[in-house]
Write a protein that binds this DNA or RNA. Sequence first.
DNA 1: CAGATGACAAGAT
DNA 2: AATCTTGCCATCT
Length: 122
Amino acid sequence: MSAYEQIYAVVRLIPLGKVATYGQIATLAGLPGHARQVGYALFRVAPGADVPWQRVVNSRGEISYSALRHGSDDIQRLLLEEEGIQFNPNGRIDLRHYGWQPLPLSELATEQSQEGGSKSRL
DNA sequence: CAGATGACAAGAT
DNA sequence: AATCTTGCCATCT
């Protein structure tokens, strides 16, 4: 499997109503520190693919607006708002609230263990 | 094959 | 806190 498909697999795991950062996706995909490759991979996502690319934002919780995106950046914001994500006045998302916090190993295996989740949240 | 570029991130200023 | 600079790697010229 190519590294890009691995990236797409992780992006597909982002639940509706949550967002993840490029660096986070890179780490979960087994490419720690290679956030740029994640962005490049998402650029190559074919239209119609079942990849929620709109749920990936930069580390500042903001959409990466670019002139080379044919306006898909603007669509990204609309899609996120459709999913119930609220933007700050400065156009940023509060990652403390909407940031996706994946469970360890839950991406590679079917999450079956489900106990009371009173763990630290830092 | 070498140089430039890019949906980023972290460190320095 | 905001902006600039450097690192990283796959693709494109």
